[in-house]
Nucleic acid binder design. Structure first.
Lengths: 167, 167
DNA sequence: AATAACTTTCAATTTATTTTGAAAGTTTAA
DNA sequence: TTAAACTTTCAAAATAAATTGAAAGTTATT
């Protein structure tokens, strides 16, 4: 296998895998392309390489910037904008963990807290509902705490600790 | 808020959240319903409560059984099949982690290993590609190892250790 | 062995998501 | 200030995914 083929494989694998962290195909592919590109790319470059429309490229680049994993860079002497991605996988995971917590986990925790607080009328239905939604709330809360530790400064010690424990 | 309202809220929240672990709305809603139900439900019950068709119920129940988080139970004296879900959130997370590793992480790791092994022709393109895909491979591998520890027997000590570290 | 009770399958339909492309908007350079 | 270079927006079109419902399949009962 040579570079071109490997690159295509990476981009398409990443594309279909986008669902793993809740983004669409084009978005994941743009990210993949930038992730392995040694220098920033213009929108033109991206459109061409991935064979997607201008509108598609524009919207998904914006989406990636909202996730905080793709950035605009200014290339001196160039009129148009260039884009590059977060290159450090540790920082990338942190950013994704942070965003998923904010977008998905935290709203869910809020709902779970609210609904598990209904009054127990003594019925089997209510008892089971309260018990199960409370258990789910605790789980989500623990998961969120773990994610936050990863996201914040403690990254170093926790990673090291985990690696020690797990290796 | 009373039980009925809370239950509806739980089911719909879980439904829209299904994407978090890669399943569709109906599937997540069936799971939610069974998760808070004190006793097993028939396909009829599920169809009625969620207002979905027989075919939909049938296919998604099968999907949930493939995930290993919903089971058929035999209710004595009843002709039809009844269903129940994994009730323990710890076991539920384990099962989901196990399946996601098998379905998504492992195939990805395989591709990453393969493509990061291309020959370095000395170009900046190739150098960056190899460096970045290798970093991604290492990350995915560490994540997979962590998931496996969770899935297997070590569950207890690692959970306890984490809780101690994180609380 | 026939029938009733129940479940699965799958082509057709509906619904949801993604993509396009061209008009509108913005920025830079002359 | 004008015009060219470039980017964003968004309604319409294309594509993909989920859902239905009825026929086919299966299993249990008499």
């Amino acid at each position: 296998m040579e570079l071109k083929e490997a690159k295509e494989k990476f981009i398409s694998t990443w594309g279909t895998l986008g669902s793993l962290w809740g983004i669409n195909k084009a978005m994941a592919q743009i990210h993949a392309l930038l992730f392995v590109s040694p220098k920033p790319l213009s929108m033109e470059d991206i459109m061409e390489e991935l064979e997607i429309s201008r509108g598609n490229a524009s919207m998904n680049l914006r989406g990636l910037m909202d996730w905080g994993i793709v950035f605009k860079v200014n290339v001196p002497g160039e009129r148009k904008e260039f884009f590059t991605s977060e290159k450090d996988v540790t920082e990338l995971s942190r950013q994704i963990a942070k965003e998923r917590s904010r977008r998905e986990l935290q709203p869910t925790i809020k709902v779970l807290k609210e609904i598990s607080g209904i009054e127990d009328d003594g019925s089997a239905e209510a008892k089971e509902f309260i018990k199960q939604t409370k258990a789910m709330h605790d789980l989500a809360d623990t998961a969120d705490t773990m994610m936050h530790r990863l996201v914040n400064q403690e990254q170093n010690w926790i990673t090291k600790t985990l690696v020690k424990l797990l290796k």
